[in-house]
Amino acid sequence: MTTNENINEVVDFLCEYASRLLSCGVHTSRVVRNTQRIAHSQNMWVTLEIFRSHITLTASIRGTNHYVTRLVEVPKAPISFSRNSALSSLSWIAYDNDPSLDELKEKYQQILEKPKLSPYLVLLLVALANMSFCKLFGGNPMAMAIVFLGTALGFFLKQKMGQWKSNTFSTFILSAFVASVFCATVANYFLNPEQTVIAMSTSVLYLIPGVPLVNGVIDIIEGHIMIGASRLIDAMLLIFSIAVGLGFTLSIFHDSLL
């Protein structure tokens, strides 16, 4: 139970929890609700103001007027649905069972230490996904094979640039360029113009930022206009980066694509 002595420790945990949850690709109202559930389990009241890269959090022990306010930076982390699910479940465990802060911290740590999917498995699944996408657009087996290889190449570069902590927009531009230029080059030899267009248009779709797009819309509908707009602007910039990468390829192969 929270007291005046350990209030700072509890608030630190709330900040850590809220910022971590936001960083793994969760829409804003869920971050607010989940953090409030955790606070409830510690006999605390909390309110949050959430922006794209910072959270302001004010908390107090229920029934007192001793308030603590913190401004916390949101860590940069890749989207993780697995962490989103586990952290949401943790908030319900806290709400339903009122565990101690130490128990919560222990479970939280276990969630952070959970292993991710193997990057090679993800690479294979993404290449298969884009290949299937090509089929849905009417691609023939040769176009599908070319898209599979182009996607694997582009996504591998994206994974490597992620490890090197490269700028996100440069990563998207280069990844889109590599995937599309590979498809355009090989398609020139093996595909007719119609199939070439299908292969080219499919080659970069693994980069579409679906999570910020949907979260942005949910945030705006739920009244979190600022962060919703930020997420949509982020998504638009990423889509623009994909277009730039693909645009480089188009400008190289323009004559053969007409």
Binding site: G25, L128, A129, S132
Partner: peptide, 24 residues
């Protein structure tokens, strides 16, 4: 069937990018 099958493979692959729990 073909439409659904390829859409399912595409969904799984695009989901894998965001590291979902395996049961999802």
């Amino acid at each position: 069937f073909v439409d659904g099958l390829f859409a399912a493979i595409a969904g799984i692959g695009f989901g894998a990018i965001s590291n979902p729990p395996r049961r999802a």
